[in-house]
Design a protein around this nucleic acid. Structure first.
Length: 196
DNA sequence: TGAACGATTTGT
DNA sequence: CAAATCGTTCAA
């Protein structure tokens, strides 16, 4: 895969807009084990201070959320239970917005992904969830703060998908009214989204 | 469908 | 120190 990251300016926009535009882009991670990547088929926008589901709700600023207060185009990883989740910072300095990558369609290094994921039923299980794709691509907490236009973790032009759908976000039952906002974007026809 | 898993952060 | 979490995998 030829190294051709999207320009940093691409990320300097509201997370709702960025979340929709990231669908179809190619997410790539290169490690000593090899290269792995996939087309993004599902994202969620986290809008920041006004969004009860966001870690940066009410401008909460801690070591963990710090990167979201910086410029767009940087990686915000965070761990829950035994899994790592990956976000891309959006908007501008001082606006703690981010986009969660929830699922990708495997494209590069599928054999490596199978290896890293272990026992899975089929290839559609490889990356159909935020924790799954991190493990498949080899994304870890070490990628926190990494700039997404540089190796080894970057995003490039991908392909066009038909029919991108918006719906409520997943896994945020305790976020009050924000629970139902249609801020999840996914490819309707893709078997690789986290929930069908 | 439900519980275990158990890293890390945050609030009491 | 206790509770909570943008999840995944097992067991029935």
């Amino acid at each position: 895969m030829e190294f051709a990251p999207l320009p940093l300016e691409f990320y300097a926009k509201p997370s709702l807009q960025l979340a929709e535009q990231l669908v179809g882009k190619l997410l790539v991670k290169e490690t000593e084990e090899g290269i792995a990547g996939g087309f993004i088929v599902e994202t969620e926008a986290y809008v920041g201070p006004e969004d009860r589901a966001a870690h940066s709700y009410n401008n909460r600023r801690t070591p963990r959320t710090e990167v979201m207060f910086g410029p767009a185009g940087y990686i915000y990883t965070y761990q829950m239970h035994t899994h790592c989740l990956v976000n891309v910072v959006a908007a501008h300095v001082g606006e703690p917005q981010a986009v969660l990558i929830r699922a990708v369609e495997p494209c590069i290094g599928i054999e490596l992904m199978r290896q890293r994921r272990g026992t899975v039923k089929g290839d559609r299980e490889l990356t159909s969830g935020p924790g799954k794709l991190c493990k498949a691509l080899g994304i870890t907490m070490k990628d926190y703060g990494h700039c997404v236009i540089e190796r080894p973790l970057w995003i490039g032009e991908g392909k066009k998908y038909e029919r991108i759908t918006a719906g409520p976000r997943i896994g945020i039952p305790n976020s009050g009214e924000a629970r139902d906002y249609p801020w999840r974007f996914y490819v309707e026809s893709s078997p690789y989204v986290s929930r069908r």
